[in-house]
Computed example of a mutant assay.
Amino acid sequence: MKFDHDLTAETLPSKIYRILREAIIKGQLQPGERLVQDELAKTLNVSRMPIREAIKQLAAEGYVTVEPHKGAVVKQFTIHELEEIYFLRAKFEPLAAAESLKTMSSQLVNQLRNLNEKMKKTDDTDEYIQLNIQFHHLLIKDCPWGKLNNIIENLWTGFPQQTPHLLPNQIATSISEHDLMVEALANNNIELTCQLLEQHITRAKYDVLKNFIQ
């Protein structure tokens, strides 16, 4: 496997952590896949020590689990964990958005609209995933409630972002829902924007769970 990486800055363990984290988020490393230290060290042309430190950080943040006789394995989510993550996101992200958008500017609306336009144009799922993450984070970026922000960040941590976007029609549906949120925000209707955000996350939850059961 090849990783997109540049080992010219940061400390070595943090660079490797970032590379592996991105590979997990993009689905290059699949849920249930083992992280074999010798293989990773050879692929990245480093010793095992920084690999070991990076894996410790990934485990601490929930991206991998360490299993007896198997070592580090990319975390697999159960249907109950997925349901919990989406349920909590649908409750907490609109709360954070409501606080964040109190100080919004026309520039924010333009940024959100531009991100969604880029999502419409790209055929690259990885690029779409990154744009989608940026879109959601922009909605809550100015929320002053640190504990709420930490909860939301934790809910996003380790979650395989590619999963919902591989479902049939998921990307087109999400983009349409983003359009509705941007339009509501352009009309300065923060309450409607937050309602649409909750509906957006809840709808994605049902689609993912239905696919998971199948």
Rank of each mutant, 00 (worst) to 15 (best):
Q161I: 00
N154E: 07
P68S: 12
M1S: 05
E10S: 12
E191A: 15
Q57Y: 02
V208L: 12
Q76A: 10
Q57K: 15
H165N: 10
R18K: 13
E61M: 08
T122F: 10
Q199Y: 02
L29P: 05
L209W: 02
I152K: 07
R203W: 00
I24W: 09
D123N: 14
P13H: 02
V36G: 00
K147H: 05
A90T: 03
P144W: 05
K120Y: 01
K2C: 00
L88P: 00
E198K: 15
K120T: 12
I133T: 12
Q37E: 14
Q170M: 15
L20V: 04
S100G: 02
T125L: 15
S174N: 11
N132H: 10
L148Q: 04
L112Y: 07
N114K: 12
I190V: 14
F87I: 08
M104F: 15
M49H: 13
H137R: 11
L7D: 02
E177I: 03
T173P: 01
P68W: 09
S174D: 13
E81R: 03
L58V: 03
I85P: 00
P68C: 09
K70E: 14
N114T: 09
E93Q: 14
Y206C: 00
L88R: 13
K56F: 09
Q170D: 07
H178P: 03
V73F: 04
I151G: 00
L115C: 09
K70V: 06
V64R: 02
G158T: 03
I201Q: 06
E99W: 02
I16M: 08
C194I: 01
R21A: 13
N132Q: 08
L196E: 09
W156A: 07
K91A: 01
M181A: 05
L180Q: 14
G27Q: 05
I151R: 03
A96T: 01
G62Q: 01
L82H: 04
Y206S: 07
K121C: 07
Y128E: 02
P168F: 06
T125G: 06
A96G: 01
V182W: 02
V64N: 01
K56S: 10
R203D: 03
F77K: 04
R52V: 03
E93C: 01
H5T: 12
A9Y: 11
T11H: 11
S176Y: 03
H165A: 00
Y63F: 15
R34T: 08
E93N: 01
H80G: 04
R34A: 12
H136M: 11
E117H: 10
Q107H: 12
I51E: 05
K56N: 10
K42H: 11
T122L: 09
K141I: 09
P168S: 06
R48L: 14
P50E: 06
D123L: 12
Y17Q: 00
I25Y: 03
N150A: 13
I201N: 06
K91R: 06
E198H: 12
A98K: 14
V73L: 05
R89C: 03
R89E: 08
D6C: 09
N132S: 12
M119R: 15
N189P: 11
P144S: 06
I55Y: 06
L197E: 08
W156I: 02
